[in-house]
Design a protein around this nucleic acid. Sequence first.
DNA 1: GTTTTTTGTCGACATTTATCATCGTTTTTT
DNA 2: AAAAAACGATGATAAATGTCGACAAAAAAC
Lengths: 193, 193
Amino acid sequence: MKSLHNYFNRYISTLISDREFEFILSHFTYRKLKRRQHLLVQGEIFKDMSFIVKGAMRKYFIDEKGVDHVVDLYIENWWAGDRESFVTSVPSMYNIEAWEDCELLLISRENTLKLCRECPVFNEFILKLDERNSIAAQKRITSSISLTAENRFADFVERHPYFIQRFPQHIIASYLGISKDTLSRVRKKSLNK
Amino acid sequence: MKSLHNYFNRYISTLISDREFEFILSHFTYRKLKRRQHLLVQGEIFKDMSFIVKGAMRKYFIDEKGVDHVVDLYIENWWAGDRESFVTSVPSMYNIEAWEDCELLLISRENTLKLCRECPVFNEFILKLDERNSIAAQKRITSSISLTAENRFADFVERHPYFIQRFPQHIIASYLGISKDTLSRVRKKSLNK
DNA sequence: GTTTTTTGTCGACATTTATCATCGTTTTTT
DNA sequence: AAAAAACGATGATAAATGTCGACAAAAAAC
């Protein structure tokens, strides 16, 4: 799995040796999902963090009124999961669905903790990931509390140009917390500028 | 600084020895801030993560129109900072202000990295913090994309009952991404239920 | 290749939320 | 104690966004 290997090298300070990588990789399992198959269903405990080698996924939940809300979007080289359920073993409120056919590398909580203990490179890697994660979350929150629908979309396009080509508008609208109709209108307005 | 010591013990799997704690503490510096004093001003590089021993703070930024938006609220036993600026040394877009007189324990990026390398307990601590952080961020995002102003406030009260007593309504409104007038009305409505 | 399903757009209208000005109260500063 | 600033509430109005139904185009399934 070249893709994960490169990914590691991108986030740690020293290059990773083949032996080290093999050791780390041995703690992952490989899994394929067909489009529309679910990695996680609301109510289950989320067991394995999933690195996306190929494909696209979305995390969503369904509210009391039956409306679904897209909470996260993922493509290659992203991690799909519900951290809360993963860490605390509470049933998840989220669903995670393959939006395209997917190839994944899964790692359990136990193996994550084991690798953090036994493998300094992996530990460093997790720290870096969390840093990036925290920075991205901060930006998303900032955008969601301070921008209008129009600017939120512009901000999204700028930050995630790839997503636009992989997910339909109504999914992106939901991710941004606006209705698909509003996004359609807002998009039209932006084009006329 | 008993407060930080207890805080560590709460987040790691084994109790921390006095010697270990002294070692860790020696990497922090102590600082006081008067109400309204700033820990960080927009445009500066954020140098030291701040553990709040006593007091309350807010993080905010001012948009192009001159409106300020509260991005984070902190009280005792929270960490105040801008992770992006801290990690990547870019100028921060945020301001961090003491909302009450504060006592802080500061730690630099260098010392954080050093402690992570040299002190397994500290490393574990950071991992745990990031986990909690990531879970909290997920919840805030979920709430902001899926709830109305009224429910967002209800969710906030439930999750952070202490904040209500420490910050005025217009600050909380801004944190929730709604106007102070709307919050005032929404609050009234909730009381009648 | 035909039939479903998904997707994007649009108009009309309803609802939510923002804005602005004002006022009384409380809190802080002097 | 007086003056100033901050806070919270409220009415009137405007702006933003949501909802619903309909339709056509595109994509997927059969």
